[in-house]
Computed example of a mutant assay.
Amino acid sequence: MLKRYIWLAVATVFFTFQMWVGNANALDLSPETRTLPLNAEGDTVVLSLKEIKKGQKVFNDTCAQCHALGMTKTNPDVNLSPESLAFATPPRDNIEAMVDYLKKPTTYDGFIEISEFHPSLKSADIYPEMRNITEDDLYDVAGYILLQPKVRGEQWGGGKYLR
């Protein structure tokens, strides 16, 4: 019985420590870290701390069930790493492109529209979690997704991409 309590205490300390170091506090993020690509033309934007927090909430509530830590449960070969997003057709490596994808998702090669298989604004009738998502929410979650490689490093996307 005592062993059980010791293991419980050790596990509690371990998981508390992981939560503490695993999640970067938005207050610790410098403007340079929060600077992300806005569009394919090379414009950038500095996300506010409020946008990051909102993006994190929307991601955790709506996306994380299939994309925990930037991986994709339904297709482990495609993740949310910068490289995977950049090599998609069209590229999804900036906020505007990611928002466009979240409105009208397509396969990785861009040939087939997949809104009946991937939550999107277009498929809100099939995916109830998308019914209350606004344009601002899409912007915030896209920014959050693009920020994570800067915060989590190779942990984001399952460590399958090269630096």
Rank of each mutant, 00 (worst) to 15 (best):
Leu47Asn: 03
Thr35Ile: 00
Val13Asp: 00
Glu83Cys: 11
Asn60Trp: 08
Asp136Pro: 10
Thr72Ala: 06
Leu147Cys: 06
Ser48Glu: 00
Pro91Thr: 14
Ile52Gly: 12
Met1Glu: 10
Asn25Gln: 10
Lys73Gln: 03
Val13Ser: 01
Tyr101Trp: 05
Ala97Lys: 12
Tyr144Trp: 15
Tyr127Asn: 09
Gln155Trp: 05
Glu41Met: 06
Asn25Cys: 06
Trp156Leu: 01
Pro82Cys: 08
Thr35Arg: 11
Met1Lys: 11
Thr16Glu: 02
His67Phe: 03
Leu102Met: 11
Arg163Trp: 15
Val21Leu: 02
Lys3Val: 13
Leu29Phe: 14
Ile112His: 12
Leu146His: 03
Lys50Ile: 11
Lys122Glu: 12
Glu129Leu: 07
Phe17Val: 08
Leu121Pro: 04
Gly70Ala: 02
Thr89Pro: 06
Phe111Pro: 01
Leu162Arg: 11
Arg152Pro: 00
Ala40Gln: 04
Ala11Phe: 15
Arg92Asn: 08
Ile133Lys: 08
Asn39Asp: 15
Trp20Ile: 02
Met130Ala: 09
Phe59Ile: 02
Trp7Val: 10
Ser84Asp: 15
Trp20Arg: 03
Asp28Phe: 11
Pro105Asn: 03
Asp109Ile: 13
Ile114Asn: 06
Asn25His: 12
Thr62Leu: 08
Arg131Thr: 06
Ala88Pro: 12
Thr16His: 02
Leu147Glu: 07
Asp100Leu: 09
Leu138Gly: 04
Asp137Thr: 07
Ser84Gly: 14
Gln155Gly: 03
Glu135Asp: 15
Asp137Gln: 05
Leu121Val: 10
Glu135Arg: 13
Lys150Pro: 01
Leu2Trp: 09
Lys54Leu: 07
Asp43Pro: 09
Ile114Thr: 11
Tyr139Ser: 08
Asn132Phe: 00
Thr89Gly: 04
Gly158Glu: 05
Met98Ile: 00
Gln56Asn: 15
Asp100Thr: 11
Ala24Trp: 02
Lys3Leu: 10
Thr107Lys: 04
Lys160Ile: 07
Gln18Ala: 09
Val46Arg: 08
Thr106Asn: 11
Asn75Trp: 05
